[in-house]
């Protein structure tokens, strides 16, 4: 109830400044971040010295890993919001990503729009889609204390999106060329420019989300609902509307992700599925609802996957990823940056 009372005070908005938002990074979290940097840095240094891999190859896979991690973070940002605020295990996150990529594909090929303009147009479409899904379907199953009905609905939604895409666009892989091609040299590694742009997009989305959550009334309401939905509704927050807005914002994040990723993705209706799983790993690793957590988690998992694949052939490096996931679930379920409940 303490939290509810604090929300009451801040949402009257007579105070000059809203109370300090519950997370960006407090001291403890900064220590964790610093510790992580040291551990990863040490691991990388050890690999350069004793890893038995040519250093050029290692550099290349480190850079690739960081960029891949940026993409993962981008997909996870929306999920951490949905999972953190609504408590919904959104199994449709990957399918929504695919959906936004197909919308970009449609706008770019049928209307002949510039790729990044098409991506920008996709954003409001996906926000509307997310808002609609939450307000018409998911809000109906939020009431009771079970977690499984929302999960089953998003599972159905995922299958529905993927198969409607299959019906409309067929299963043949398609692709959209990016207006900016080519690659540049970053400290001895070749980097595709579109991937670099996607990485920048991840950072931009993270900053934008943080600003929305900390500086706007909507963000205040979202945080209030996340902290205590009953308390929030008592002080006049329309909880169902906030749920819908939150899901819409979560969908917006995947729209940005889709727009930025489509140029280096071989687009098939099931292209996004793998991201659902990885996004869950990242969100749990980073801590539910934590935006810095999603960023750090994304980078970490991207690195583990690419660097791991130097040592484990095939899809073996993903085993490592799931191993880490289970360890986090068992030993630190609140994640790296989550508050202990």
């Amino acid at each position: 109830m303490n939290r509810g009372v604090r929300v009451t005070q801040t949402s009257t908005e007579t105070k000059e400044a809203p109370a300090a938002p519950p997370r960006l990074l407090d001291n403890r979290q900064l220590r964790i971040a610093a510790g992580l940097v040291v551990v990863v840095g040490a691991a990388v240094a050890l690999m350069y010295l004793f890893g038995g891999q040519p250093s050029g190859l290692l550099t290349q896979s480190l850079i690739t890993g960081v960029l891949l991690g940026g993409v993962y973070a981008l997909v996870s940002l929306g999920l951490t919001l949905i999972f953190g605020v609504l408590g919904i295990v959104n199994f449709a996150q990957g399918a929504m990503l695919t959906m936004s990529m197909y919308i970009v594909f449609f706008l770019a090929t049928e209307w002949g729009l510039n790729l990044y303009l098409a991506a920008a147009l996709t954003v409001p479409v996906m926000f509307g889609f997310g808002w609609l899904v939450q307000s018409t379907v998911l809000n109906r199953v939020m009431g009771d204390s079970t977690h499984e009905r929302p999960l089953l609905v998003t599972l159905g939604l995922s299958l529905l999106i993927i198969n409607v895409l299959l019906m409309v666009f067929g299963g043949r892989p398609v692709s959209v060329a990016s207006p900016v091609e080519g690659s540049i040299n970053v400290i001895g590694a070749l980097v595709d420019v579109p991937r670099l742009i996607a990485f920048g997009g991840a950072l931009a989305v993270a900053v934008a989300l943080t600003l929305i959550l900390r500086k706007t009334t909507l963000g205040l309401a979202i945080r209030a609902v996340a902290a205590n939905d009953v308390g929030a509704s008592l002080v006049g927050v329309n909880v169902k509307r906030i749920y819908a807005m939150t899901f819409g914002v979560g969908a917006t994040c995947v729209a940005v992700a889709g727009g930025l990723m489509v140029s280096f993705t071989s687009l098939v209706p099931s292209a996004g599925e793998q991201f659902t799983t990885l996004a869950f790993v990242i969100v749990v690793l980073g801590g539910l609802g934590s935006i810095p957590g999603a960023l750090v988690g994304g980078l970490f998992i991207g690195l583990v996957q690419t660097v791991g694949s130097l040592y484990l052939p095939g899809s073996g490096s993903l085993l490592l990823v799931f191993g880490i996931f289970l360890l986090v679930l068992f030993l630190r379920p609140q994640g790296l940056f989550g508050a202990k409940s």
Binding site: R149, G156, L157, S158, L159, L160, N163, L165, M167, P269
Partner: peptide
């Protein structure tokens, strides 16, 4: 000749049942 319709119906069925007939 469209493919994917069966799973789409299956998905709608799942959603409808979960929402209306828990």
């Amino acid at each position: 000749g469209v493919s994917g319709l069966d799973v789409a119906i299956y998905a709608v069925l799942l959603i409808v049942i979960v929402v209306f007939l828990p």
